[in-house]
């Protein structure tokens, strides 16, 4: 075998710290996800899972530490040995390559489903409208909502809205997808349809970071799980080991309550 230099991990979070006021939300997070890997972030509420996810696409800037996506530092750059925060419009170019799905869907209510999916690729990436429309139609089929293209988001159920939100993120052809508790705002009987779409996406080889409370889902879909407690990753590894036989007592008590 040739000794090729290893490809950089798709996501590399290195010693990330973040305070909100007096509250230290993240206290030295290290996390990696390889290309095509699905990593699930578990942990009790207030552990900092969502904040960490929002640091990955610099929706929130971190105070210390570097987040790299596909080798590129996100939200900051090095000049002369010092790290400076990037201007918002430069960060937006980086965010275009990172899809994000929110707990509250956040579809644009004044646009049809099709415009929700098409607007960013046309406006942000400058892709031709006809090409984007075709791709959008395919994505809507992929999430099982092709017939809803002309509907407005408020006419859809929560589960349908979340599937549209996934299609909207995918329309940007991202190299990484972030999911922030994608099923937490859904009625229990609608959770399954969204998880199925995410599972199907995992099978296509998309790299994903998923914050979730669905331990069973994490066990099925994740190549790696990380359990966060109080702003640190208490335990990380393959789901079988971490979820079946956790070493950390805090993780053990979290899993005992979650299962």
């Amino acid at each position: 075998m040739d000794a090729l230099p290893a490809a950089p991990p798709m996501v590399a979070v290195t010693d990330v710290w973040k305070a909100r006021g007096r509250n230290q939300v993240l206290r030295g997070i290290n996390l990696e996800a390889a290309r095509g890997e699905v990593a699930c972030l578990l942990g009790p509420s207030g552990a900092g899972k969502s904040t960490l996810l929002r640091c990955v696409n610099a929706l929130e800037p971190c105070d210390r530490g570097i987040v790299r996506v596909d080798g590129t530092a996100i939200g900051c750059e090095e000049r002369g040995g010092r790290w400076y925060r990037l201007r918002e419009r430069d960060v937006s170019r980086q965010r275009a390559g990172i899809g994000m799905v929110f707990q509250g869907f956040n579809l644009f209510p004044h646009m049809t489903v099709l415009d929700n999916v098409c607007d960013a690729p046309v406006r942000v990436l400058g892709q031709p409208r006809t090409e984007v429309r075709e791709r959008a139609q395919r994505l809507l089929e992929q999430v099982g909502l092709a017939e809803k293209a002309a509907a407005y988001p408020r006419q859809l159920s929560g589960g349908q809205q979340q599937r549209i939100a996934i299609a909207r993120a995918l329309a940007m052809q991202p190299k990484l997808m972030l999911f922030d508790e994608p099923t937490s705002a859904l009625d229990p009987h609608l959770v399954g349809e969204v998880l199925d779409v995410i599972k199907a996406l995992a099978a296509t080889g998309m790299t994903m970071l998923i914050v979730t409370h669905e331990v069973q889902f994490a066990r099925e879909v994740a190549g790696r799980v990380a359990v966060m407690v109080d702003g640190v990753i208490a335990e990380a590894g393959p789901p079988g080991a971490v979820l079946r036989d956790p070493k950390d007592p805090r993780v053990r008590s979290f899993l005992a309550r979650a299962l």
């Binding site: 918002e88 170019r93 965010r95 994000m100 929110f102 956040n106 644009f108 960013a120």
Partner: peptide, 22 residues
């Protein structure tokens, strides 16, 4: 809702685009 501006930023809209379009 603050989530609207966030969703726009996450999709890569520049600040003025997010304001004007969303």
């Amino acid at each position: 809702d603050a989530g609207q501006g966030e969703a726009a930023r996450a999709l890569g809209y520049r600040p003025m685009q997010a304001f004007r379009v969303v």
